[in-house]
Each structure stands twice: as C-alpha cells, then as structure tokens.
Computed example of a mutant assay.
Amino acid sequence: MISKQIRNYDVIFMPEDEGGYSVSVPGLPGCFTQGETIEEATLMANEAIELYLQSLQEGI
C-alpha cells in the first residue's frame, strides 16, 4: 500500500528590480528560490518545497 500526504503552502512571489522573481514559502522557514519568469518561479517553488520536505524526512 502506498500512502501520500498532500499539503498546500502559501508561496510569495516578489518581482525584482533587475527582473525575475524571488520566491518564499512562509510555512517552510528558509525555503526560498527564484525564477526569471512567473512560470519558472512557480516550477522552482514546487521543486524547492519538494526538496525541503525531503530533507526533513531524511533528517538533514
């Protein structure tokens, strides 16, 4: 049997003066990323959340 828990996190996209977006996930302290476009920033945010949660599971 496979069990998967689905969670939702708020993600904040901040446009940068030099272009692109900085991204933070307030519910996961220290979880930050960035992207050149909103689409890239969204993909990067998803990856950052996955890696953050994986590191918690592995006890890193």
Score class of each variant (00 low, 15 high):
S24A: 06
E47T: 14
K4W: 00
E50D: 15
I49L: 13
P26Y: 02
G27L: 04
M14K: 06
I6V: 14
D10L: 08
E36N: 15
E36M: 13
G59L: 01
T37P: 06
D10V: 07
I12A: 04
V23K: 01
Y21N: 01
L51Q: 10
Y9L: 04
Q57N: 07
T33A: 14
S22I: 00
V23Q: 01
E36Q: 15
A41Q: 00
G20Y: 13
T33P: 14
L28K: 00
A48E: 08
I6G: 02
E40S: 12
E16R: 15
C31A: 09
L28V: 03
Q5W: 01
N8K: 13
D17H: 08
M14A: 02
I38F: 06
E47A: 15
C31V: 05
Y52E: 08
T37A: 07
E58I: 04
I38R: 14
T37K: 10
Q34R: 14
T42D: 01
E16K: 14
Y21A: 03
R7H: 12
A45E: 04
S3C: 04
S55Q: 11
T42C: 00
I2A: 05
I12L: 12
A41D: 02
L28T: 01
F32C: 09
G27H: 01
P26D: 07
I38W: 05
I49V: 15
G30T: 03
G35M: 13
R7K: 15
T33S: 15
E58D: 07
E16P: 01
R7W: 08
Q57H: 04
C31N: 06
Q54H: 09
D17E: 14
Y52A: 09
V11L: 02
C31R: 06
Q34F: 15
A45M: 08
S55D: 10
L43S: 09
K4I: 03
G30C: 08
N8E: 13
M44H: 13
L28Y: 03
V23L: 05
K4C: 03
I60D: 02
A48G: 13
S22N: 09
I6W: 09
P15Y: 01
L43D: 12
L28N: 01
T37Y: 13
V11C: 03
I60A: 06
P29E: 02
E58P: 02
D10T: 11
P15F: 02
I60H: 00
E18L: 11
F13Y: 07
E39I: 10
G27R: 04
S22P: 00
F32N: 10
Q57P: 00
T33W: 09
S3P: 01
F32W: 15
Y52G: 08
G59Q: 00
L28H: 01
E40R: 10
E40V: 11
I6R: 15
I12K: 09
E18T: 15
T33H: 14
E47H: 11
M1Q: 11
L43G: 12
V23P: 00
G20M: 12
L43E: 12
E16F: 05
V11H: 01
P26S: 07
G19F: 07
I12M: 06
M44A: 14
G30K: 02
S24D: 07
Y21V: 06
T33R: 05
G19L: 05
T33Y: 12
I2R: 08
C31D: 04
N8H: 11
E47D: 15
E16A: 13
I49F: 12
